[in-house]
Design a protein around this nucleic acid. Structure first.
Lengths: 84, 84
DNA sequence: CGCAACGGTTAGTCATAACTTACCGTTAGT
DNA sequence: ACTAACGGTAAGTTATGACTAACCGTTGCG
């Protein structure tokens, strides 16, 4: 399991096969996407998951799949008589 | 709406902003992944979505998110007293 | 048979996501 | 004030997913 609680950028980089700047860049993207939030502790920036953002993403994906599989039925199923 | 029923490779390519070989390559990947199935009609290969495969993918994603958001709670929530 | 329609495969190109190195700014400790 | 720790930013490199062009095999039809 790689998941852990709130972590600093350096700690994350230490656990990952990439350099610290790479982690920093990823975190920036995730932060802009609302999936993580940071708060400064001294010189360290501690990042944690944003539960609301993650939940929102999950919901968007659910909606996507519901719509996709919904339209899917009307297209794939073989109606015995009449279409649509 | 771009979705349609079973289609030949050429028909698909005609509806898409890519060439026929590109479509063929994508279909190969999707077929290997079990998301589409083909059956030959003359010289044409008619592809259709594999509903079982798509449903399985959806389920895997659901499982992933449930697990991710599950472990998420235990890591993000601030227990008032005692952990886990 | 010979030609046309259809599509899979290969080889090579191109765009770009992802990464590293180098640098700079900020904070904390002495 | 100087130094160390920490991390963001910029610039350049690299790896790779996605595409096209060219080719070949199979099927159907006259």
């Amino acid at each position: 399991m790689l998941a852990a609680g709130p972590m600093s950028v350096g700690d994350l980089a230490a656990q990952l096969p990439v350099t610290r700047p790479a982690v920093s860049q990823h975190l920036k993207v995730l932060k802009d996407a609302g999936l993580v939030s940071e708060d400064a502790v001294g010189t360290r920036r501690v990042y944690r998951l944003d539960s609301a953002g993650v939940a929102a993403l999950r919901e968007q994906l659910d909606d996507f799949w519901n719509q996709a599989l919904g339209g899917f039925q009307s297209v794939v199923e073989r109606p015995r008589r009449g279409k649509k």
